[in-house]
Amino acid sequence: MALSPASRPPLADEVTAKLRAMVQSGEWSLNQRIPSETELMAGLGVSRGTLREATKALAHSGILEVRRGDGTYVRATSEISGAARRMYQDHTEEHILEVRLALDTQAARLAARNATADDVTALRGLLASRDQAWSGEDYGAWARADWEFHERVAQASGNPLLHELYASFGAAFHQDLLRQQRRPGFDGRPHEGHDLLVDAIERRDAEAAVATVNRNLNSCAEWLAA
């Protein structure tokens, strides 16, 4: 049944929901600049004022970032990710790593129970991409593949809330990887928490999965403390 005028949500709320859906569906990817106001006004059939109200709402929630004179960019895929992204700016790398340790170990444990054959294939493919990018000194691609690997483990956990929380680490994780890459002697292809993790997930060995994640993150903690 159609909504009556009295019960229909404000137009700006409808536009906000449409823009949010475009982000969450992957139509606009993380860090991508979204179409111009003119394009969006024409595509959505709304006024500039309504569009700006919707954009402002999503910028306030952390999903979008408006850069004056440059455009509007996707900064998070949900309100929870946007809020987490802002919170990370107020905490140390050590604090972030400690939270990651809790999420990574639980994701590994659940992935060993719930991952599908397609998940395992995807994880091995991401590691192959990571290794190829590292060998070719394409460190941006290397960092993206490494992050996508860890996020896919969280997705394979079968817990959508854990996956969403983990995905909120994207920006901080990516920056940390690029800092590590500049460290003399750093190896961007560690087996701990990566190849050995996939092996454990494939064997359905939750304890081995958790153990290799712990060893990997402990080495990260040692690097931060150095």
Rank of each mutant, 00 (worst) to 15 (best):
T116C: 01
R113G: 08
V99K: 13
D119I: 00
A117H: 08
A112C: 09
Q106M: 14
H91T: 15
T116D: 00
R86K: 12
E94K: 08
A84T: 11
L97Q: 04
T92S: 13
R113E: 15
A115P: 02
R113N: 11
L103T: 13
R109C: 03
R85C: 08
Y88G: 07
R109A: 07
A102V: 14
M87S: 10
A112N: 06
A117C: 04
A84Q: 13
R85P: 02
A115C: 02
T116H: 00
E94C: 02
L110P: 04
A115R: 00
A102I: 13
A84P: 05
A107L: 02
A102R: 15
A115I: 00
A111E: 01
I96T: 10
A102M: 12
Q106K: 15
R113Y: 08
A108W: 03
A117E: 11
Q89Y: 11
R86L: 11
T105H: 06
A112L: 06
L101K: 15
L101A: 14
A84H: 08
E94Q: 10
D118I: 01
E93R: 10
R100M: 08
R86P: 04
D118N: 05
D104R: 08
L110E: 05
T105W: 04
T92V: 03
A102E: 09
L97E: 04
A117R: 12
Y88V: 13
E98L: 13
M87Y: 11
H91M: 14
V99P: 05
Q89D: 15
D104V: 03
V99L: 15
T92G: 09
T92N: 03
Y88I: 13
I96K: 06
N114P: 01
Q106V: 09
I96G: 02
D104G: 05
R85G: 07
L101T: 15
Y88A: 10
A107I: 03
L103C: 09
Q89C: 09
A115E: 00
D104A: 07
L97H: 01
I96F: 04
A108H: 05
L97S: 03
L97I: 02
R100Q: 08
N114Q: 01
A108T: 06
T116M: 00
Q89I: 15
Y88K: 05
H95A: 12
D90W: 12
A84G: 08
D90Q: 09
A102T: 12
D90F: 14
R100V: 03
H95F: 11
H95R: 11
L110C: 06
D104H: 12
A84E: 14
L103K: 05
E93W: 12
E98Q: 10
E93G: 10
D119Q: 01
Q89E: 15
E94V: 07
D104W: 07
R85K: 09
R86D: 11
D118A: 08
